[in-house]
C-alpha cells in the first residue's frame, strides 16, 4: 500500500475524494444547523453554545481545518502537475466539448473563491464566537453592540442586515453550488463506484445535494436580510 496516496495520480485523487466527501457531510450538517435560526433564535443559540469552546467542538474544528487544508493543498498539487502535463503550447482554437460542464473545468477557480468566502465567514462568525471563548472573553462588541459569543442568532441578524455581506455570501454560495455540482458525483467516480447507468442518476443527485446545501444557506442569508428591512 505504501505511500500511493502521495505518489500516484489515482491515490491523490482518492485523497481529494475522501476529503471532499467529509466537507460535503460537514456542509450538510452546518446547513441543517443554520435552518434552526429561521425558527428559533434560542434553539440556534443553544446549538452555538453546544459547539462553543468545548473540547469536542475544538477538536472537530481542528479536524475540519485539516480537511480543508488537505483538500486545497492536494488541489494545488494536482493542478500544478496538470498544467505541466498540458505543456507550454496551447491550442489556438478551443471549444467546450459536448456534455462537459463549465464547473468541471474551473474547479480550482471555484475553490479559490470558496476559500476567500470562507476567510470572510470565519472573520464574521468564528472569530466572534469560538475564538472569543478560547481567548477567555465573555462578550464581543460589534458596531457598538455587545454580543455574547454564543449569540449566533444575533450575529446572523447583524451580519445579514448589510446588503454587501448578503452579496458576498450569495456569490460565495453560487461558487460553492458549481463546485459541488461537479465535485459530488466526481468523488463517487474517483473511488470507482460509478458506471454508465448511474452517471445520470449521480449527476442529478449531485445537483440536488448542491442545491440543498447552497439553497439552505442562502435561505438563511436572504431571510435575515429581508427581516432587517422590517418586512417580517
Amino acid at each position: 500500500m505504501s505511500n500511493f496516496l502521495c505518489n500516484s495520480s489515482i491515490g491523490k485523487k482518492l485523497v481529494m475524494s475522501i476529503s471532499g466527501c467529509f466537507l460535503v457531510l460537514f456542509l450538510l450538517f452546518h446547513m441543517s444547523m443554520n435552518i434552526a435560526a429561521l425558527f428559533s433564535a434560542e434553539a440556534y443559540n443553544a446549538i452555538c453554545g453546544f459547539l462553543g469552546a468545548n473540547w469536542y467542538a475544538v477538536a472537530g474544528t481542528l479536524v475540519l481545518v485539516a480537511g480543508v487544508f488537505v483538500h486545497f493543498a492536494y488541489a494545488l498539487w494536482l493542478t500544478i502537475q496538470n498544467r505541466k502535463a498540458r505543456g507550454q503550447q496551447r491550442y489556438a482554437v478551443t471549444v467546450t466539448e459536448k456534455g462537459v460542464s463549465w464547473a468541471s473545468k474551473n474547479m480550482l477557480v471555484l475553490g479559490v473563491i470558496i476559500i476567500g468566502g470562507l476567510a470572510i465567514h470565519l472573520i464574521h462568525f468564528w472569530s466572534n464566537m469560538m475564538l472569543v471563548e478560547l481567548m477567555g472573553e465573555h462578550s464581543v462588541v460589534i458596531a457598538g453592540v455587545e454580543y455574547a459569543p454564543t449569540d449566533g442568532a444575533g450575529l446572523i441578524a447583524f451580519t445579514f442586515s448589510k446588503w454587501y455581506n448578503v452579496l458576498i455570501y450569495v456569490v460565495w454560495l453560487a461558487a460553492l453550488w458549481f463546485h459541488l455540482s461537479h465535485g459530488a458525483w466526481s468523488m463517487i467516480q474517483t473511488v470507482g463506484w460509478a458506471n454508465d447507468k448511474w452517471y445520470p442518476r449521480l449527476k442529478c443527485l449531485s445537483t440536488l445535494v448542491a442545491t440543498l446545501i447552497c439553497g439552505g444557506f442562502a435561505l438563511v442569508v436572504i431571510f435575515f436580510y429581508i427581516k432587517s428591512l422590517g418586512c417580517c
Partner: peptide, 21 residues
C-alpha cells in the same frame, strides 16, 4: 498507472471531455 504517472501525463478531473472527443 505507474508508467502513466512516470511519463508525465496529468491527473483525471472527471470532466468527460475525453469521452466526448
Amino acid at each position: 498507472v505507474a508508467k502513466m504517472d512516470e511519463l508525465g501525463f496529468g491527473n483525471c478531473t472527471n470532466t468527460g471531455a475525453c469521452q466526448a472527443e
